[in-house]
Computed example of a mutant assay.
Amino acid sequence: MTYNLQTSFYFRVSVPGTGSSDAAFQEVSGLSKELGTEEVVCGGENRFKYRLPTIATFQNLVLKRGVTSAESSLISWVKDTLDDGLATAVQTKDIKVQLLDENGDISMSWSFVSAYPVKWSASDLKSQESEVFIETLEFSYQYFEIDDSRESQTDLFS
């Protein structure tokens, strides 16, 4: 039985209402969830504390890419959300990140539900270096789901 390691450099990001070229990112981070714990002291037992599970928490989704001169519906959404304050309702969208294999087929995907932008930042401007100007978009969301095609492959060998 052979196991192929997944590479992390071949991926695709899609956001409804934006063109595919608008979702070309060089880096995605924040693919993390963690189960919180709460410590409870038991009366009369001083040797330890119970560590009980609480709710799952998620990091913000962070997307990085080079800035282009073309108009961007994604950046319009980010700008409208951040600049309008809470004068208008925050528009949420689902964001999908797909990890691709060497043939361009989806091997894993993450669906971020009800995401909305919470931060926009840009790289430093340096006249001594000739680097691409990078913008960073950060999104909060309710939760994410993982669709892992590896699970169906491992069921074959069980």
Results as ranks from 00 to 15, higher is better:
V113M: 10
E45N: 13
D83L: 14
S107F: 00
G44Q: 08
Y143E: 05
E71L: 06
S76H: 10
V67R: 12
K93G: 05
S14H: 12
I134H: 00
S149I: 04
G30P: 05
S111H: 13
K79C: 10
D22K: 06
K96C: 03
D83I: 03
S152E: 14
R47V: 10
K64D: 06
G66M: 08
L35K: 08
K79D: 12
D148I: 04
S72Y: 05
E138N: 02
G30E: 07
V62S: 12
A23S: 15
S130H: 14
F48Q: 05
D84P: 00
Q128N: 12
L74G: 02
D94T: 05
K79M: 11
F58K: 13
G85H: 04
G44D: 15
A23L: 11
V67C: 08
F9G: 01
S73L: 02
R47K: 04
R65E: 05
T7H: 08
I75Q: 10
L31F: 06
S140P: 07
L82S: 04
E71V: 01
V113K: 15
V15I: 15
I75M: 15
V90L: 09
A24M: 06
L156S: 09
W110D: 08
D155E: 12
D80L: 03
V41L: 04
I106M: 08
D147C: 05
D148W: 07
V118E: 13
V90K: 10
S130G: 13
T81R: 04
Y143P: 00
E39V: 09
L99D: 03
V118H: 14
L82N: 13
R65W: 13
V13I: 09
L35R: 10
T57D: 04
V40K: 13
E145L: 11
T7M: 12
G43F: 05
E71D: 10
E138V: 04
D94R: 01
A87Y: 07
P117N: 10
Q91P: 01
D155M: 04
L74V: 13
N103V: 11
E135R: 06
A70C: 06
Y10C: 11
T88Q: 11
V40Q: 14
N4K: 14
K49M: 05
S32V: 10
Y10P: 00
V90C: 07
A115R: 09
Y50K: 03
L99T: 01
N103D: 12
S73H: 07
N60P: 15
Q142E: 11
D155W: 06
E38M: 08
P53R: 09
E131N: 14
D124Y: 03
Y143R: 14
F112G: 00
S127W: 05
S140R: 01
K64L: 02
G30Q: 10
I75N: 02
R51S: 15
F144N: 08
F11R: 01
Y10L: 02
N60L: 00
V132L: 12
T88R: 14
L74H: 07
L86E: 02
G17M: 11
Q98L: 02
V78Q: 02
D105W: 02
S8R: 01
S8L: 03
V132D: 00
E129D: 15
G36R: 07
S111D: 15
F133C: 15
